[in-house]
Design a protein around this nucleic acid. Structure first.
Lengths: 203, 203
DNA sequence: GCGGGAATCCGAATTGAATCCGAACAAACA
DNA sequence: TGTTTGTTCGGATTCAATTCGGATTCCCGC
């Protein structure tokens, strides 16, 4: 039964462990990430790790929360500006921001994501999906001509997954066959054409 | 150094191990899948497992090849018929086939896929991506009006990843918010509008 | 159908990582 | 200062992955 850190010193320990988790994952992958390793990188002993985390898995979960929080912290302040943009610009802005976040600190989050993304037991990506679905709704509200679009949930699901996860996959590839700009442009075109096509159909 | 099975008995053993791998993964997840477990399910001893596989990872790799081979075996015979279809029908046909394959045998392949990123971080989807890229090329050859489309690699990359991975993700979700038919229809519309939009732009 | 070498199979022993635990150390507080 | 509570430590334990030497079965020439 892990303990909750009360004193600042303990909070620092917990934080150091989570940071070390990202580091170790980046350096050694999932298999190579041992508790001893994490503890060493964090500058604490294994015992301390187990004071705050029931097992290694919980360290990964804490890392996950950390990362989700960062994504939210990135997207939420952007939202008011995003909803006023053209679709293609919105996508460009969002995806470049996303890439920068993922590549920050030598790709720590990216490394984590590429392991967690398909790792399906519990919907790891659900909060991010919800965040983006909310952005989509805001966008529709600010652009009433889109209100005619039918089946927003399905469209959103496809655009969000198709978009975010394609980018995630792209960034994880060792030597991609296309450039990131091309990818972003293509995704922008795809979504824009989709919306236009649907509007044409509905109208 | 693992040995290659020569006698039929040994081939059966190897096969049983791979099968047991899928079973164990379905039943116990990645963490719960131990070599002892796989060996037990396969009805052989741990020692035998290590006769043919250098380590547990190699068992997963064999499973992977098995699955990729099945996907190829599904798509290749369909190709001549697919290239003659409307885009929306092609997608419907392909994705329903894909779903059926993944859900065959109580979702063994699906389970495997959703864990695959865990142990196969190196381009595990590359062969499937290539297969589908080839299908796309065939399609363009049979539908010359599409030849005007610019930047086929990028379009293909987006459609294939956006499509396949969205479906994969969808099928792994415990309680999806939309129906599979909706998803497939949406993806079909998306691709169709994309192509039409691009053609309009190019023309 | 018999004998010997190769192939196959086995499972106890080894190894190393994850996890637990009780003693030592530090902080809070009276 | 003494006591209580929080924190850290690292050796001891447990359990899964992998190894190894020997037993068993198959194959083929006689």
């Amino acid at each position: 039964m892990p303990r909750t850190p009360r004193q600042p010193r303990a909070k620092a320990t917990v934080n150091a462990i989570v940071e070390a988790g990202f580091l170790s994952l980046s350096e050694h992958g999932v298999q190579g990430t041992t508790t001893r390793h994490i503890a060493d990188l964090a500058g604490v002993s294994v015992g301390s790790l187990y004071e705050y985390f029931a097992n290694k898995e919980e360290v990964f979960e804490a890392m996950h929360h950390h990362m989700v929080a960062e994504v939210v912290a990135m997207v939420e302040p952007m939202t008011p500006a995003l909803v006023k943009m053209e679709i293609r610009d919105l996508i460009k802005e969002l995806l470049f921001g996303f890439r920068d976040l993922l590549e920050k600190n030598h790709g720590r989050y990216l490394r984590y994501m590429s392991y967690a993304a398909y790792f399906a037991p519990r919907n790891h990506m659900e909060p991010i999906q919800r965040l983006l679905m909310n952005l989509l709704l805001q966008y529709v509200i600010h652009n009433p001509r889109l209100a005619r679009l039918g089946n927003l949930p399905a469209m959103g699901y496809i655009m969000i997954n198709g978009g975010v996860f394609t980018v995630l996959r792209y960034l994880s590839e060792p030597n991609p066959t296309i450039g990131f700009e091309e990818l972003v442009k293509g995704l922008g075109d795809m979504v824009a054409h989709f919306v236009e096509g649907e509007l044409r159909k509905e109208g």
